[in-house]
Write a protein that binds this DNA or RNA. Structure first.
Lengths: 322, 322
DNA sequence: TAAAATCATTGAAACGTTTCCAAGGAATTG
DNA sequence: CAATTCCTTGGAAACGTTTCAATGATTTTA
């Protein structure tokens, strides 16, 4: 494998000149450029990126740390993040934490050692506490503190829209259904928006939540139906949860949307395999992904960001369940 | 950031000794080990993985090159691949090619420059041609040649099982539906298995295919229904295609499975959002993923693999469409 | 007890870049 | 034409690690 030295020798110039040609810095004569390029072609030389990273003490690698790439929401997010990173000349390293805090910490240590340029995280830990370096971080949907910029959808507004849609559909008693995993999550704002809007319209409403760690499908819905079986409108804080609700409701003989209107959050359905088509609050996944990357790169460049949280508007997407 | 030299100085030993302690090589006295470990702790030293990669001229990074992580089949695959890689002490770099040959080549060049340890590819190019180094490669579902080991499900047997299930369900005229993208793909064996088994049972059958590059939903199905509208059993070579068929069939007033039995291939449905539940040939995704990683690591270690293609058995999974 | 073998250790060299400094030559200025 | 500035260049140093040859200390063998 030829090195920059071989190129320099063949071209009859110094290594510095070769380096300057490769990285097209100023102040190289056209003749030198030609000589170097010829030599590069002749030797089939390709720059050793690892050596470059080493010398520069930084790599063009960004890590994406999330619970599971298998989840359709995250895989869509990852798709756009990778695309944007590639456009900007960066590479993506994928880390599945399984949502386990210990594995998150383990990965953060590893990323430290590997001197990644930045991290985009969808995590359960307050990673601000756990990262012992100055690696720039963007957090999606979780707001930990000032050091870690947060990108999220406008959860509060999303909650309000959901409530409004249910009201519009004639719902008498609306229920918020949530699996809530942690305090830092921006997701709780969906509830707040829902509640505020329900109050505004003066309709009856309830909220029913469970902690993600101790969550059991059957128990959760059993309790819900026992307490609030008469709810005729449901706002589930994720599409998956909405789908689970629909399944359980059907088992109990309820018809969707005739008996109960259901609205979800996320908008993850993207092919003909998904039915019924959920009415949902669509997260602007592509926008969130691209913005996360752009903000992260600005941080990597050393810029100060003007905001601590970036909220991107959401839209209601009509489906068959309302 | 402390380096190995700082550790050596503080511990009062040479850098070589520190290196041997870190990589727990033989020939170090317990006292030295203790001194070094104390110094490491005191300085909060973490080894610089980038420098190590540079020196060793290889990294513990494996690239996964696939069309789109957004696709549920690939995202499930990626999940298990990452998990297995992590278990083995490797990291995963994710590359979405969009299925575009030029982008595949572009990524392969990049991976070359970055000296990844190996590549797992789900590609449209014959990457054997395009990779100009000795980076070990595993290819999933495509068989290019001897240099690139192929891991796949037993497509031929899967095709046979599909045909058998349709026969068993009383189908009179069975149709194979396929979007076929390239010659190298192992996927065509699904057709072969289907045809052979249909012949064996002596039922009427047809095959209807289109090239993936010029594929148009509406045209494809329009033509199919025109030619073979009387088929009462469908084997679609992917679940997505099966779902598309079902949609189009319903638009034409056909009832599934009463009028037409449908069987897919992949088994990508994993949550309550998917309906109807497809009867399908389930690919052993987890097994394929883990085996791909294990084989790749063996190649990285310099081992010769005994086979050129590894086929993993598939199973029929019952659903609502047969 | 002397010679040989083993073990533990050190520190320099090397990996392939980028960057910086010194320096030569060309162009510009007064 | 001398002095100054500018442009281009070459080559050494540095990044942090692993490894290897050399060395000294200890143990084993004859």
């Amino acid at each position: 494998m030829p090195s920059i030295k071989d190129v320099a020798n063949l071209a009859g110039v110094g290594v510095g000149t070769v380096s300057r040609v490769i990285n097209n810095h100023a102040n190289v004569t056209p003749e030198s450029i030609k000589k170097v390029n010829d030599a590069i072609k002749q030797l089939n030389y390709i720059p050793n990126e690892v050596a470059r990273n080493f010398k520069m003490q930084k790599s063009k690698m960004v890590a994406l740390l999330l619970p599971s790439i298998w989840h359709p929401f995250f895989s869509e997010m990852a798709y756009y993040i990778e695309d944007q990173l590639d456009q900007e000349g960066y590479k993506l390293m994928l880390c599945n934490s399984g949502g386990r805090p210990d594995k998150e910490v383990y990965y953060l240590d590893m990323l430290n050692q590997n001197k990644v340029a930045g991290i985009i995280g969808i995590t359960y830990n307050d990673i601000e506490e756990n990262v012992n370096t100055d690696i720039p971080i963007i957090s999606i949907d979780r707001h930990f503190g000032s050091k870690i910029t947060c990108v999220t959808s406008d959860n509060y507004e999303g909650g309000r829209i959901a409530a409004r849609q249910l009201v519009k559909a004639g719902v008498k008693k609306a229920a918020y259904l949530g699996i809530t995993s942690l305090a830092y999550s921006e997701v709780i704002l969906r509830k707040k928006g829902f509640v505020d809007e329900a109050k505004l319209h003066g309709i009856e409403y309830v909220t029913f939540e469970e902690n993600g760690d101790v969550y059991d499908d059957d128990v959760f819905f059993e309790q819900f139906f026992q307490k609030h079986g008469n709810a005729d409108g449901i706002f589930a804080n994720t599409d998956i949860l909405a789908a689970e609700y629909i399944k359980k409701a059907k088992e109990r003989g309820l018809k969707i949307p005739e008996d109960v209107k259901v609205i979800g959050y996320d908008g993850i359905q993207n092919n003909d395999l998904f039915h019924p088509i959920l009415s949902t609050i669509r997260q602007p996944v592509e926008e969130m992904a691209r913005m996360s990357v752009k903000l992260l790169l600005r941080k990597i460049e050393g810029e100060e960001l003007e905001q601590e949280i970036y909220r991107i508007p959401v839209k209601y997407r009509d489906g068959e369940t309302i």
